[in-house]
Amino acid sequence: MTPATPAPGTRPPRRLPLTWLGILPFLIFVTLFLILPTAHIVIGAFQDRSGAFTLQNIRDLNTGTIPSSYWISVKISVASAALGCLIGFAMAAAVTFGAVPRWIKAPLMTFSGVASNFAGVPLAFAFLATFGPVGLVTVFLRNNFGIVLQRDLGFNILSFWGLTITYLFFQIPLMILIITPALEGLRREWREAAEVLGATGTQYWRMIALPILFPSLLGTFALLFANAFGAVATAIALTGSSLNIVPIQLYAQIRGDVLGNPNLGYAMAFGMIVVTAIANLIYIWLRIRAERWLK
């Protein structure tokens, strides 16, 4: 039994300065394997080969195929995040507000848990097997309707839209997983109060429900964006190196210094951090603005 008060002569407990020692292992771990490596990249982006400060690497980002690779990466990420939010929201709303039978909800949530984690190389194979040159849908359309995806619809799995619809396979379930609890938080009385005050369903959604959901929607969008922007495995397995997006370029640079300048590689990685950080800062800023009415 420890005595409630220290006996005379023993050291008084120095609680305050030592408390943080409890999370020291965690701090050392994240410093070594998360903060320092990231900081190394960021600093390296502003150094030349001899280690002196320079902005040349950042300027060099504007050369060759690098700007276009950023642009196409951002486009794919925005498109897959926006469509993921939209479709995922519609599905989550359908099961939450009773447009479809209630029992569908539990299996849908389980399935979303699986599908949102089914990314990377296997996912790429699934879409190749479906929309690739000899894929299930491709062959089905050609044999039954005489439609050749690439020739008649301009669709190619190794393209902007090909990658976008592949990413949607994990973006939609991720949205469902995150937004469903938020939708469940909408209280029935809010809708009814709006209705007796004369509001239509559309007015209720525009003036009450969407503003309440706004922070969650934005947060999920930012997350989905970062999720797609950093995806390497799916893109490489799907397109090899035929699609010029940032993660693939950076991957090639790390493997073989294809840019001929290691510090330019740092700058590319730094650029990726900047893009995802901007997405998240926009989210945080809008969230603070939108949450004046929250504790």
């Binding site: 394997f33 190394h40 390497v232």
Partner: peptide, 18 residues
């Protein structure tokens, strides 16, 4: 939550150099 924002490829790039 940072690993959701910093792409894995950037982190591993840091490892290789550091």
């Amino acid at each position: 939550l940072l690993p959701l924002v910093i792409p894995a490829i950037v982190i591993v790039f840091g490892y290789i150099r550091l």
